[in-house]
């Protein structure tokens, strides 16, 4: 099977001009292949660059070197060098990202937050809201909260809204940075179940997770060490 994602010698170095040009290496020499329906688990000590790796693939960080070729229905794109409009299109259609830091847009209801990715794809509002409601239910957000602002929610609730938003539209690649961080065990299980469903539908997952590995979920691991993979 052709890989969904091929990463070659990906590297990220930060240059801090405010500190006189000091260079900080986040990670280097990362290479791997990921197939549709596969889940890659990124491991390593704290601060080693796991989150940076995901952000580089999402282009929140600018990779310093290397390639990351994504194969989508439309064609191949190197995420490292693709122009911004392409990246924005990919973020709409193909790549999803979840982090534990949810930047809440003030005064938008949980339902609207979750429906937005679908509306951006052109899904008719009634259908978008229906799918959003289904996803919120799946993540155990009670109906009473659907019209409320996530900024007023507990950490766990916010995290689940965040997940709902990221998972509501079909994606070819999902990047997940500690998706279950603030969740209690029961809800954690529910999320992992959702991710398993995603895998089955062909989505490739890259997962940063502190919790013990789920053998059924994770297919391969990548260990990042200080300075290199």
């Amino acid at each position: 099977m052709t890989p969904r994602l091929e990463v070659h010698d990906l590297e990220k170095v930060f240059t801090l001009h405010v500190l006189g040009g000091k260079r900080i290496s986040a990670f280097a020499g990362v290479s791997f292949r990921l197939h549709p329906g596969e889940c890659l688990h990124i491991l390593g000590p704290s601060g080693v660059g796991k989150s940076s790796l995901l952000k580089c693939l999402y282009r929140t960080y600018r990779p310093s070197a290397g390639r990351a070729v994504l194969r989508t229905e439309i064609g191949c794109v190197d995420l490292v060098s693709a122009p911004e409009p392409s990246i924005l299109a990919l973020r709409r259609n193909a790549i999803g990202y979840v982090s534990q830091f949810f930047a809440a847009i003030p005064r938008v209801s949980a339902l609207s937050v979750v429906a937005e990715p679908l509306l951006e794809l052109g899904t008719p509002p009634p259908e978008a809201h229906r799918l959003a409601r289904a996803m919120l239910t799946r993540l155990d957000i009670p109906e009473s909260l659907w019209e409320c602002y996530p900024a007023t929610f507990s950490g766990g609730e916010r995290q689940r809204v965040n997940l709902a938003r990221a998972l509501v539209a079909p994606r070819e690649l999902m990047l997940l940075d500690e998706p279950t961080a603030s969740l209690d065990p029961a809800r954690r299980e529910a999320v992992l179940g959702l991710l398993a469903d995603l895998k089955r539908s062909g989505t490739a997952l890259i997962l940063v997770l502190h919790d013990p590995i789920q053998p059924t979920l994770v297919d391969r691991s990548l260990v990042l060490r200080e300075g290199s993979a």
């Binding site: 001009h17 990246i87 924005l88």
Partner: peptide
């Protein structure tokens, strides 16, 4: 110039870094 989240989280140019920080 770039993606807004990239400008804010990984500013490249000295001035941008100063501005963001």
């Amino acid at each position: 110039s770039g993606l807004t989240d990239q400008i804010l989280e990984d500013p490249q140019e000295p001035y941008t870094q100063l501005l963001v920080h």
